[in-house]
Computed example of a mutant assay.
Amino acid sequence: MSRPLRVGVVGAGKISEQYSASLARLPQLALTAVADLDAGRAEALASAHAGARALPLQQLLEDDDVDVVLNLTIPAAHAEVALAAIAAGKHVYGEKPLAATTAEGRAVLEAAAAAGVRVGCAPDTVLGTGVQTARAAVDAGLIGTPHAATATFVAPGHELWHPSPEFYYAPGGGPLLDMGPYYLTSLVHLLGPVARVTGLASAPRSFRSVATGPKAGLEFSVTTPSHVTGLLQHRDGALTTVVMSFDVWGSRAPRLEVHGPKGSLSVPDPNYFDGSVELCTGEQWTGLEPSAGYVGAGRGEGLADLSLALAAGVAHRASGEVALHVLDVMEQVLASAGAGGAPVEVASTCERPEPVAGLVDLTAGVTL
């Protein structure tokens, strides 16, 4: 690399703190500009990075010192900001989901293809040592050809800790769209894309109450499913059972497991980059030493991967194509649930991303 990829951040909310820490330690990236509706937040983030400036959005998009826009706005604004960045000739990397709808996400990718720029999207947790070590075990045939998987996220509800949780229970929210991207993106890396889905969903409680903060005691309506179950048929034949819920107080179900004729893999929480991978080929589970993935990773690793891929002229791993497919799968699960569980074909597809070969420390300034 001749120089770092210059990053303009749009949206300086809570998640920007994690990206800021990564941008400060990854030599492939340099934060040069920040825009936010709250000028004070933009100034605060910019001041943490030498030479970075707080700018109005349009000025950031037109700035020659910005190569890629890191889109950390709310999901409803993801497509609008991405399209504006693409129109300005910038690459885009965004927080999940890619857009509020599959149609919007497809428009973003089509615009990027026409402009000759790249689109990347979180989650990049799949590039850490947890999922990548599991991927290496699958690819090495330790469990044989996978034929089944389970993915489970359950919680009693975000209103117990979030001071303004209403959006989690409105259309565009819910456990599937909120947490599903971590699990489904991991499944695409492990098992490949999905061809067909069946879904069922419910909202056991019509109202919730805010438990903490200045809105404590406020009751609000639930207008989107808060408990979702799905069955995914992957294009290579494996079947995955998914449970995503804000209606379960406790569970001992594993976060993510993959099963084959020779054994089973327990994959760590895909909301994190690392964790223990365990293999069972008999009666006992055995921990696997980390063997692949970006070590010591944090949010923003996928953007560094994009920077390296640009320099090498190869595909980046946390791609817009994977993010669009994951969004499509989630939409179709909910469409199936709305149709009483009728199977729905998934129109989109994507390539299974290349694995991270071996243990890689991006802070060492590696190249592809």
Results as ranks from 00 to 15, higher is better:
residue 3 R to Y: 15
residue 4 P to A: 09
residue 7 V to N: 15
residue 9 V to Y: 03
residue 11 G to Q: 01
residue 11 G to W: 00
residue 12 A to Q: 10
residue 12 A to L: 05
residue 13 G to Q: 13
residue 20 S to G: 10
residue 23 L to P: 09
residue 23 L to E: 11
residue 24 A to R: 13
residue 25 R to A: 13
residue 31 L to I: 09
residue 33 A to D: 01
residue 33 A to H: 03
residue 38 D to Q: 11
residue 44 A to T: 04
residue 50 A to R: 14
residue 58 Q to H: 07
residue 64 D to V: 12
residue 69 V to Q: 04
residue 73 T to Q: 09
residue 75 P to C: 12
residue 77 A to Y: 02
residue 81 V to A: 00
residue 83 L to T: 03
residue 83 L to R: 13
residue 86 I to P: 05
residue 86 I to E: 02
residue 90 K to P: 01
residue 93 Y to F: 15
residue 96 K to I: 00
residue 101 T to N: 07
residue 106 R to I: 13
residue 112 A to H: 15
residue 115 A to R: 08
residue 115 A to V: 05
residue 117 V to M: 09
residue 131 V to N: 01
residue 131 V to C: 07
residue 135 R to Q: 11
residue 137 A to Q: 02
residue 157 G to F: 13
residue 159 E to Q: 12
residue 161 W to C: 03
residue 169 Y to T: 09
residue 170 A to D: 07
residue 171 P to F: 04
residue 172 G to R: 03
residue 173 G to I: 03
residue 174 G to P: 11
residue 176 L to I: 15
residue 179 M to G: 13
residue 180 G to R: 07
residue 181 P to E: 13
residue 186 S to Q: 05
residue 188 V to G: 14
residue 193 P to F: 13
residue 194 V to D: 10
residue 199 G to S: 11
residue 199 G to A: 06
residue 199 G to C: 07
residue 214 P to R: 04
residue 215 K to Q: 08
residue 216 A to D: 00
residue 219 E to F: 02
residue 221 S to M: 14
residue 229 T to E: 14
residue 231 L to F: 04
residue 232 L to C: 00
residue 236 D to I: 05
residue 240 T to K: 02
residue 241 T to I: 13
residue 249 W to H: 11
residue 260 G to V: 03
residue 262 K to W: 09
residue 267 V to M: 04
residue 269 D to K: 05
residue 271 N to Y: 06
residue 271 N to Q: 02
residue 275 G to E: 08
residue 277 V to N: 00
residue 283 E to M: 09
residue 292 A to K: 10
residue 298 G to K: 00
residue 301 E to W: 06
residue 305 D to Q: 12
residue 306 L to P: 08
residue 309 A to R: 04
residue 310 L to V: 08
residue 312 A to Q: 10
residue 316 H to F: 01
residue 317 R to C: 02
residue 320 G to C: 10
residue 323 A to S: 07
residue 325 H to I: 11
residue 327 L to E: 13
residue 327 L to K: 15
residue 330 M to G: 05
residue 332 Q to N: 06
residue 334 L to W: 14
residue 336 S to K: 06
residue 339 A to T: 00
residue 341 G to K: 01
residue 346 V to M: 05
residue 348 S to Y: 14
residue 351 E to L: 13
residue 360 V to A: 05
residue 361 D to S: 08
residue 362 L to T: 05
residue 363 T to F: 00
residue 365 G to S: 07
residue 366 V to Q: 14
residue 368 L to A: 15
